[in-house]
Design a protein around this nucleic acid. Structure first.
Lengths: 202, 202
DNA sequence: CTCCTTACCTAGAGGTCCTAGGTAATACTC
DNA sequence: GAGTATTACCTAGGACCTCTAGGTAAGGAG
C-alpha cells in the first residue's frame, strides 16, 4: 500500500484549497481524507481535531492575506495606501472565500491569538493611518472602523448580500473614498461640540 | 404519552432562543428535539429540514430586528436618525447574537429574499439617508457602506475581535460620527477630481 | 539487515440529518 | 358520547461525521 505522504503542512494546505471550493464551514476531516484517498482516522496523527485543523488554516490564511496586503501597500502613503490596502483586502477575500472566512474565526489559544500575522496586520494598519495625524484613542477607533467596513463589505458581498442593480466594485471604491474623507475630517471633540451647538436650536 | 404541543411557530421560537444561547451554527434539530423532550424525527413534521428551520429563523429575526430599529428611528432625522439606527442595530446584534447571525445567511428562496422585513429595512435605510441629499447611485453606495460598517463592527465585536484596550461602545460612537461626516462630505466626482489635481504634483 | 519511527489501517462508539411507515392523542362530526 | 379524521409523535434504520484505541507495514538510520 503506497503512502500518500501526508504532513501537517500538506493537510492544512489541502484544507485551505478545500475551504475555497466548498466553504470554510464545510471543511471536514472526512472530505479531506477522501481527497487524499485515505481513511479519516489517518488524519488524526497529523491534526489534533477539527478545531485544531481550523485554527491552523486560520493562521495560514492570515499570513497569506497580510503578505498580499503588505505587498500592495508597500511604497504607498495616505490615500494611495488606503486604496491599495482596501483593494488587496477585497481581492483576497473574494478570490479565497474559504481562507478569508478562516481568518475571521475566534482563535481561543492566546498563543495563536497574537501570531506573527496578527502583529504584522496591526503594524501595517496603524502605519497606514499615521498619515492622517490621528492620535490615540482616535487611532484605535479608526482602525476598528476600517476593519469593520472592509470585513462587513466583503462578508456581505461574498454572501450575495448586494443585488446587482449597482456595480459592486464601484460601490467599494466609493466606500473607500468615503472612508478617506472620514479620516481626513475625523470628528474631534471640538468639532462635535461645535456641530452640536449648531443644531441644538432646531 | 402527553404531547409537547409543537407547532412551527413554537419550534422556530425555541430555535431562536437556542441560537442566542449556543450560537446560530450550533442550532441543531437534535438539540431542539432534546429541548422539547422529543425525538428528532418528530420535528420533521413541522420543518422540512435544517435549511428550512434556519430560513424561518432568519425571517423571524429579520422582522424582530427591523421592528426594533424602526421604533428607535421613529421621529428622528439626519444625524439623530443615524445614531438611533446604529444604536438599535448594535443593541439587537449584541443582545441576540444567534438571531443576528441568522439575519446574515443567504436566503436562496427568491420568495423569502424579498420578504416584508427586507423591504422595510430598505425603506427605512433609504429614508434615513434622504436627509443627506444623495442621489443614485450614491444613495446605494451609501447604504452599502452603512450596512457593511454596521455588520462588520457587530460581527467583529461579537466574535471578540476587538481587544479591551479601548471601550468598544466609545469606538462605535466614533464610527457613527465618522460615517455621518462621510455622508455630509460625500465624495462627488468634482471633489475627487479636485483632490486628485491637488495631490498629483507630489 | 535489523530497528525504529510513523504513515496508515481496522474496529467501534457516539453524534447528526433525514426517510418510511406506524401508533395514539386530539379535534370534528353526528 | 361514539365514530371518524387529523396529526403529533413514535421506532427503525441508513448515511455521514468526529474521534479513540490498538495494530500493521513502509521508509529511513545505523
Amino acid at each position: 500500500m503506497a503512502r500518500a505522504g501526508l504532513t501537517v503542512e500538506r493537510v492544512v494546505a489541502a484544507a485551505a484549497d478545500l475551504a475555497d471550493e466548498v466553504g470554510f464551514e464545510n471543511v471536514t476531516v472526512s472530505a479531506l481524507a477522501r481527497h487524499f484517498g485515505v481513511k479519516d482516522a489517518s488524519l488524526y496523527s497529523h491534526i489534533k481535531n477539527v478545531q485544531d485543523l481550523r485554527t491552523r488554516l486560520a493562521l495560514l490564511a492570515g499570513e497569506e492575506m497580510i503578505d498580499h496586503i503588505a505587498a500592495a501597500v508597500a511604497g504607498c502613503a495616505g490615500r494611495d495606501a488606503l486604496a491599495a490596502f482596501a483593494g488587496a483586502y477585497r481581492t483576497y477575500a473574494l478570490k479565497h472565500p474559504g481562507r478569508y472566512a478562516a481568518t475571521q474565526i475566534r482563535l481561543d489559544q492566546p498563543l495563536a491569538a497574537d501570531s506573527r500575522a496578527m502583529r504584522r496586520t496591526a503594524e501595517i494598519t496603524y502605519g497606514m493611518l499615521r498619515a492622517y495625524g490621528l492620535e490615540e484613542p482616535d487611532l484605535t477607533d479608526a482602525v476598528r472602523l476600517l476593519r469593520s467596513t472592509f470585513h462587513g463589505y466583503c462578508a456581505l458581498e461574498a454572501a450575495g448580500g448586494f443585488n446587482a442593480s449597482r456595480d459592486v466594485r464601484a460601490s467599494w471604491d466609493k466606500a473607500v473614498d468615503a472612508l478617506h474623507t472620514a479620516l481626513e475630517h475625523w470628528p474631534r471633540e471640538e468639532r462635535r461640540e461645535a456641530q452640536r451647538k449648531e443644531k441644538s436650536p432646531s
